[in-house]
Structure formats: C-alpha cells, structure tokens
C-alpha cells in the first residue's frame, strides 16, 4: 500500500511538474543534476560526464567538505538507477550531498544508504580522476586538527549555510596537550556526578589539514562563567574495554588561546561570489 501510495503521489506530482516546467532548460538542469548508478552493485556513479567510484565507508566517516558553503536549495543532486526517468529522479533516487572545491564538478559524493534495520549509512564516492589523490591522502591522513561548524548568512537572499571552520594551530595545540595529559582528579570533573557551570560550549570534531576527513569522536569545549575552559570527551582506560567520559580542565595560562572559539562573530555574512563551487 505504501508503494502504491508513493506511485499515486508520484503520478500527481508528475502532472503538477509538467505544468510547472519552464521548458527544455529546466529539463536540462534536471538531467545535469541527476547521476546514474552504472550497475546494480552501485559501485560506480556517472554524473556530468564523470565517473565516481565507491570508497570504503568507514574511511570517510562523517562529514566531508561538502558542507562548506553549501546552499541546499540550489544544489540538489540525485542518483538513480539507469531506467528511472529524469522527471522521477527525486521520487525514486537517492539525494546526494557533495563537497565543493574550486571546481565545477564535485569531487566527493555522499549518498545515504537506507538500510532496513540499521538506519542509514553514508556511502562515499570519489571522482575517478581524484581517486589516487584521495587514496594517497588517506594513506597519510593525520587527524590532528579540529574544526567546528560555523553558520553563515548569504547576504542577498539571507540563506543559511554552514562552513567547517578549522581552529588555529595554537588552539589545536592546547586541546591536544589537554587531551594527552593524564586525568587529574584535582582539576578535572567526573561527568557522572559533576557538570561544569559553563556559559557556552562548542562542538569540535577531529579533522586533517585539508578539512577533508574526520572520525566519529565528538569533543566539546565548554567555557564556564568564571572563565575556565573544559574539554569534554571520552577516552579508553588502560586494560579496559570501556570508554570513560571526562571533563578535562584546560590549563589557566592557555585559556586565552581558546577565546577564538567563542568569538562574538558567530554568524558571518557573505556574498555569493565568495562561494566556492
């Protein structure tokens, strides 16, 4: 019944879409924004004349740089099987998120794979001419940098976009140093019983110097009302399979280096010419 309802709704949308089509240009745009799985195994995608090959899922877990300057309304790619007509791409296809670099065509595609029992998993595809570069980067990746997501406003039309903002090397060094030192009960808090009275916090993720990769470790930096900084995360205890949560206090002399995370210019504006496609 669900499939039949979907089919009936697709038919109605088709009728409405047929009235709204401006003409061939809109059809060309639809074709341009539609990729095709080259076979049933979905190992390859063809999009805008390029072939994209699947890379291992876990290597590129989480976000990639496609979130940089992404204006969701304007960029809408779908990937479908070969036999799906272009007008039904949105109904029968997978919506793709993709990165944006200084090129017209995206380098990396992220296609959610909706698995029946396990929810959805992101599957990554890399443009075939960039694959060797990506693999070389993967071989040498060092997730020793950190980034947070910054909201930006596109000025003429006030659209909200999100940018991955890498923190400075000095701030990153403070975080690395704090995470590396052993837990100090005298200064650190037990998250089971204590909670810093922080005024604001920032979510951080690990990344590499190219802002290309990340992992599934979430960090949180909190600033208290008294001006202290804490880093919240999890670490594995020695000879233990479980992870322990912690609130690690940043050394007072390093507090100033983390002020950039809580700058008052949280929301910036930009004009579309600055968007990197």
């Amino acid at each position: 019944m669900k499939k039949i309802s979907k089919i009936v709704i697709s038919l109605l949308l088709l009728v409405l879409l047929s009235l709204s089509l401006v003409g061939c240009k809109q059809l060309d745009d639809l074709k341009n924004n539609r990729g095709i799985y080259l076979d049933e195994s979905k190992e390859e995608i063809e999009l805008r004349g390029h072939v994209y090959e699947k890379v291992l899922e876990r290597i590129m877990y989480g976000n990639t740089e496609w979130e940089t300057y992404l204006i969701a309304d304007e960029w809408s790619l779908t990937v479908t099987d070969k036999d799906v007509p272009v007008l039904l791409a949105n109904s029968y296809g997978d919506t793709v998120r993709y990165n944006s670099r200084d090129e017209e065509d995206p380098v990396i595609l992220c296609v959610p794979d909706y698995r029946e029992n396990n929810g959805s998993v992101n599957v990554f595809y890399c443009r075939s001419d960039y694959l060797d570069t990506l693999k070389a980067k993967l071989d040498n990746v060092e997730l020793d940098q950190f980034y947070y997501t910054k909201m930006m406003i596109s000025e003429p039309d006030n659209k909200v976009v999100y940018k991955k903002q890498r923190i400075s090397e000095k701030a990153a060094e403070v975080i690395r140093k704090t995470l590396a030192r052993p837990n100090d009960p005298a200064t650190d808090l037990d998250p089971q019983t204590e909670y810093p009275d922080y005024a604001s916090f920032k979510d951080l993720r690990y990344t590499d110097k190219d802002l290309l990769f990340t992992n599934d470790i979430n960090l949180e930096v909190g600033k208290t009302n008294t001006g202290d900084y804490y880093i919240y995360g999890a670490y594995s205890k020695e000879s233990s399979m479980t992870e322990e949560l912690y609130w690690k206090k940043v050394a007072p002399e390093d507090n100033a280096l983390l002020d950039e995370l809580f700058s008052s210019d949280f929301v910036e504006t930009f004009v579309p010419e600055d968007v990197i496609h």
Binding site: K3, I4, I7, S10, L11, L14, S18, L21, G23, C24, L27, D83, V84, P85, V86, L87, L88, Y92
Partner: peptide, 24 residues
C-alpha cells in the same frame, strides 16, 4: 509539451505505470 519534455513525461508515466503493475 512537444519535444524532449513530452518524451520525458511519457517515460515517467510509463515507469510509474510499470511500477504500479509490478505491485498489483
């Protein structure tokens, strides 16, 4: 819709009909 648009509309209609008949 004469032209490419018409062709795509028929393709889409045919696909939906095929899916429907595959179900029922």
């Amino acid at each position: 819709t004469l032209g490419e648009v018409g062709v795509e509309l028929y393709k889409a209609g045919g696909y939906v009909a095929k899916e429907l008949f595959a179900q029922v």
